[in-house]
Amino acid sequence: MAVGNVAPTPSKRSTTITSVDKALRIIEHMSTLGPEGQTLLEIATALSMNKSSLHHTLATLRARDWVTQDHNGNYHLGTTSSIIARWWNASERLTTTLHPILESLCAQSHELVHLGQLSEKTMVYLDKVEPDRAVRVWSQIGRRIPAATTAMGRSLMGVLADHTFTIDTWITAVKSPANNLAERIQQEIERVRTHGYAIEIEENEPGIACVAIPLLVAGQATASVSITMPIERCSHERLHDLAGLLTKTVTEAHIPQITTFTPQP
């Protein structure tokens, strides 16, 4: 047996490039930070990286605007990251990507399901799937409605309230706001923060109720998915259950760059 002529089995080599992996880990971490950012030491500790090596990688990312540094020395995600966010937030891509989820939600709830996208202070209907039974609500793809009076808009306001518009600013988009609208918005902001969803009952359409959850697209809260029904099929218990269905269905779809909001305890 000519053992000496048998070629050795090549060992499997990782195709991962360490420097690229490190840069992507940093960008992913930066996308989770609040407006205060983090220092070099805090980032190094969070990612278990050597400070000197991390500093060089951050300098490279800064040169291409993936990372910025403020006057206090804290690092933040840079403007180049918005390219990825814009690509994922394109309405055509969102609609194509999420339409199967809308179909699944409609089949499970037997109610009207909408996908909406935030445009300044209004929500734009991007897509919908209608059930076999009547819903008695008029909706049209491309229609714009004030975010302040919709469950979809309120679900996003619950995520954005701290660093985008004040409640009064949202209300300016409503032609004839109800006297208690500011109070209702604040209630729904709190519901989003504690439970992850928002509701409205006959505040946008007479006889109609709606529940919605915010969607984080490439880390940004810009879209929402909702379930709409006549008030005779609505109760707070059912709205809560449908909110759970929304979150479960989106989460289990495992769509890259699209996640649900995690409420704070």
Rank of each mutant, 00 (worst) to 15 (best):
7 A>N: 11
9 T>C: 08
11 S>A: 14
13 R>M: 15
14 S>L: 14
14 S>D: 10
14 S>P: 07
15 T>P: 03
16 T>R: 12
16 T>Y: 08
17 I>M: 09
18 T>Y: 08
18 T>W: 07
18 T>D: 13
19 S>D: 14
19 S>N: 12
20 V>A: 10
22 K>F: 07
24 L>S: 11
24 L>E: 10
25 R>L: 12
26 I>F: 01
27 I>G: 02
30 M>E: 01
30 M>N: 02
31 S>A: 15
31 S>V: 04
35 P>H: 06
36 E>Y: 05
38 Q>T: 04
40 L>Q: 05
42 E>V: 02
43 I>V: 09
44 A>K: 05
46 A>V: 04
46 A>R: 01
46 A>W: 02
47 L>G: 01
47 L>D: 01
48 S>G: 06
50 N>C: 06
54 L>C: 04
56 H>G: 05
59 A>R: 06
60 T>S: 10
61 L>C: 07
62 R>K: 15
62 R>P: 02
63 A>P: 04
64 R>C: 13
64 R>P: 00
65 D>P: 01
66 W>H: 09
66 W>L: 10
66 W>E: 08
68 T>G: 09
68 T>E: 13
69 Q>C: 13
72 N>G: 08
76 H>R: 10
77 L>N: 00
78 G>W: 01
80 T>I: 04
80 T>R: 12
